[in-house]
Simulated assay, not measured.
Amino acid sequence: MKPYKIPESVLVVIHTAALDVLLIERADRPGYWQSVTGSLDAADEPLLATATRELFEETGIVADGEHIVLRDWRLSNVYEIYPVWRHRYAPGVTQNTEHVFSVEVPRGIAITLSPREHLNYLWLPYLEAADRCFSASNAEAILQLPHQVR
């Protein structure tokens, strides 16, 4: 049996200097578009390590800390876990704490999706990207992008 997911995760908004945002389509829910998300692998995994790992696993982008730098917004959202995904968590767990990061990348960067997790990707201007997200906290983070990257 797979261990239960830890109800603490990261959200990584990937964007260009022009504020075009990369969205990826979930394989387990076609039509559900989002930024990179993922739970901690261990309770003591540092958030930056989780964000770096998830960014690479889901897009192939390597945050090297020099050319591609993850930015911790020091912002957390607590939200109700969608009922369709609650079976992944321990019985009685209904909320998740999500920590927000962003990363600016060159527009032409190669994207390599994890086929187990995602079907497609697209780049959209940030307002359109926010409208396309199924997750309210993801959409809100994208809307905050212009203020966060100044």
Score class of each variant (00 low, 15 high):
3 P>M: 04
5 K>C: 13
7 P>E: 14
8 E>W: 11
8 E>H: 02
8 E>M: 04
8 E>P: 14
9 S>T: 03
10 V>R: 01
11 L>D: 04
11 L>W: 09
14 I>E: 09
26 R>V: 03
29 R>K: 10
30 P>R: 07
31 G>R: 02
31 G>Q: 06
32 Y>K: 03
32 Y>C: 03
32 Y>D: 06
33 W>M: 00
35 S>R: 04
36 V>L: 01
36 V>Q: 04
37 T>M: 06
37 T>A: 10
37 T>N: 07
38 G>W: 02
38 G>D: 02
39 S>Y: 01
39 S>T: 10
41 D>M: 03
41 D>L: 09
41 D>P: 10
41 D>V: 02
42 A>S: 15
46 P>H: 05
46 P>S: 01
48 L>D: 15
50 T>A: 08
56 F>N: 15
58 E>N: 12
59 T>L: 13
60 G>A: 07
61 I>H: 11
62 V>K: 05
65 G>I: 10
66 E>P: 01
67 H>K: 14
68 I>Y: 01
68 I>Q: 02
69 V>Y: 12
69 V>T: 13
69 V>R: 13
71 R>S: 12
71 R>F: 13
74 R>F: 07
75 L>V: 00
77 N>W: 09
78 V>M: 06
78 V>F: 10
81 I>K: 11
82 Y>M: 08
84 V>D: 15
85 W>F: 10
86 R>D: 02
86 R>A: 08
88 R>G: 07
90 A>Y: 04
91 P>W: 15
91 P>R: 06
93 V>A: 11
94 T>V: 11
94 T>A: 09
95 Q>W: 14
95 Q>Y: 13
98 E>S: 06
100 V>C: 00
100 V>R: 00
101 F>C: 01
105 V>D: 10
105 V>T: 09
106 P>K: 03
108 G>Q: 02
109 I>S: 05
110 A>T: 07
111 I>V: 13
111 I>D: 15
112 T>L: 11
113 L>W: 14
114 S>H: 10
116 R>A: 14
119 L>D: 09
121 Y>C: 12
122 L>V: 14
123 W>Q: 05
126 Y>A: 03
127 L>F: 05
128 E>D: 05
129 A>H: 03
133 C>E: 15
135 S>Y: 08
137 S>W: 00
138 N>M: 00
140 E>R: 04
141 A>V: 01
144 Q>N: 13
145 L>D: 10
147 H>P: 06
149 V>Y: 12
